[in-house]
Amino acid sequence: MPGQAGGGGFVVELEKFTGPLDLLLHLIREDEVDITDLPIAKIADQFLAVIADLGLNQAADYLEMAARLLRIKAQLLLPRRLGDDEWDDPRAELVRRLLEYQQIRELVDWMHVAAGARAERYARGYEAPPPDAPPAPLRIELNELLAAAERVIALIPEPTLHRVVPRPLDVEGATARLHALLAERETFGWADAVGPQATLVDVLSTFIALLELAKRGTLTLTQPEPFGPMVIRRESPREAA
């Protein structure tokens, strides 16, 4: 579902990779392929799959890289003249950038270790780094606030309210009515059981009561033919035993 990409999860997933080059390098490492002879078709497909999966296909930087990969893939598919020495590998620029980026990542690892080692030594007069700058103090007039509130409130759609009327099922009543009918007659039909001018609640109550009584063995339910009328038959206690 494309809509799933929106909302909070999107930002979280973005933080998994620092950028499209990071993601590309991750894929290349996973496949253990040679950067300088990049299997572009394979990598491009994987890249597209991952950004669709992570919902990154809404982030411009990733989209741009996806487009770049597809263009290189298309260029590689174009036929080349034989013996054309002047041919520029369309992958060259991307490979250069990837190698450069890989260098940066190695420096990042080095710096991470250095910062970790430094963090294990405390200096005199150590002060905790200041927290993120507090938001600038808000200066606002009451009228501005009210106007802003009105603008926001105007955006809220009128809620659609449904009136819900409780209509409890009367299974007990239906059970009593069925008992009365069973005492009078050995067999009867659905129409007799549910009574004339039955409401939806009556139908449901009666049906549940019928099933309950059938379960208890007070009566049996048969339907001689498909879609035919239901026959309700009294089960004599002796037979049931």
């Binding site: 950067i35 300088t36 002879d37 590998d89 992958r91 060259a92 490979v95 250069r96 190698l99 450069e100 890989q102 260098q103 190695e106 420096l107």
Partner: peptide, 11 residues
């Protein structure tokens, strides 16, 4: 660095 910038072969 172990990945000292090598000139990629195609260039």
């Amino acid at each position: 660095l172990s990945v000292a910038l090598r000139r990629p072969a195609p260039i």
